[in-house]
Design a binder for these strands. Structure first.
Lengths: 189, 189
DNA sequence: GGCTAAGACAAACACTTGTTTGCCTTTGCC
DNA sequence: GGCAAAGGCAAACAAGTGTTTGTCTTAGCC
């Protein structure tokens, strides 16, 4: 790769476009214009629009994962770990780059050729969250799968209603985990 | 309106298309073909694609609301009311017609001209859920706004992972509410 | 320093998009 | 029974879509 490669810029602009307009709503021309190159030049870097989307999507998940794993290091208390992970997740999703929101905005079925792959990538990340929940000291009556689905749903839906400048993403994440933690106290008895 | 009007069929097919492919991913031609008419004929019923989407969206919210309100009649216990509402919500969203999922699939920003209206319509419905949560006997430490956001997020995210034939929508909805109810028990003490 | 291949341009391709127009049929109403 | 309007057809419109092709420049490497 060349030193002055514009590939990073291409990815950045694509991420922004896909996040704002979804897969079908974003056009190659719009992305090319944002980068400052001609539409055809995009095909020097990616063979198709689908491939470009996949690259952005995977980078999004990678950043999400990296943020969470970095925040997690050296914390051992299970509830604290979950809280830290959710804070990192929501911060990346709401105030971080556009990449992460692409995972939430673009439905795998929008990209038929790559759908299975996108789902696999996302599932890999969600299993990480699942493991954090498995580690919680929960009563036997609690279905950990449900906890995961509920928590991830609540977090991933946040971009729908979140408005910058009001409550911080970390506040929101902490509040959600706190609600779940109360549940634990109730179920332990 | 004529007796044999095909307007209902137009709405049905549009709902299916918008649900499956999103706003930008669905085309007027595809909808017209499903109905069995020519693309131009759609404009006898709606002035634009945006108008068609708005009609479907509003019908989706109307059905969601109707389902919940009907299920709610004659139940007075606050927790039971919330559970019943969530069951109705999820049943309509997951196994009901395509209309309701349009509310979840289409982002208002996809339809600039009508965005404010779509948001208003959706907000109206969510306030209904909010009132059910306000009626719960929750401890003072609990932020009811957070409970609403968390619950609605978890429910509205369900179409992402739900697979027909496995767990029923009502089971899922009950499980989510049950998780919240445990929380209450913990917070009351 | 010459060569190679990546990167970008320019222009077109074939196709799809939402929408419009003019005409014709049919229906419900007075 | 005649009329106005709703509903639909047929065909086109202009613009936008993802993508390809051929050419040229330029940066990095032996």
């Amino acid at each position: 790769m060349r030193a002055d490669s514009r590939l990073p810029r291409v990815l950045d602009c694509a991420a922004r476009a896909f996040r704002r307009n979804g897969y079908h709503g974003a056009s190659m021309r719009e992305i090319a214009r944002a980068v400052g190159m001609l539409p055809g030049s995009l095909y020097c870097h990616f063979a198709s629009k689908e491939d470009l989307l996949v690259a952005v999507y995977e980078e999004g998940v990678r950043r999400l994962r990296a943020g969470v794993e970095h925040a997690l290091s050296r914390e051992t208390d299970p509830w604290r770990r979950l809280e830290i992970a959710c804070v990192a997740h929501l911060e990346t999703l709401l105030d971080g780059s556009d990449y992460a929101q692409v995972m939430v905005r673009v439905q795998p079925q929008d990209v038929p050729q790559a759908a299975r792959r996108l789902v696999a990538v996302r599932d890999g990340y969600e299993r990480l969250v699942g493991r954090l929940i498995d580690a919680l000291p929960l009563g036997a009556a609690i279905d950990r799968g449900d906890v995961r689905l509920m928590l991830l749903g609540a977090l991933n839906w946040a971009p729908t209603w979140y408005r910058r400048g009001k409550r911080s993403p970390s506040d929101i994440a902490r509040a959600f985990v706190e609600l779940l933690r109360m549940e634990l106290r109730g179920a332990l008895r």
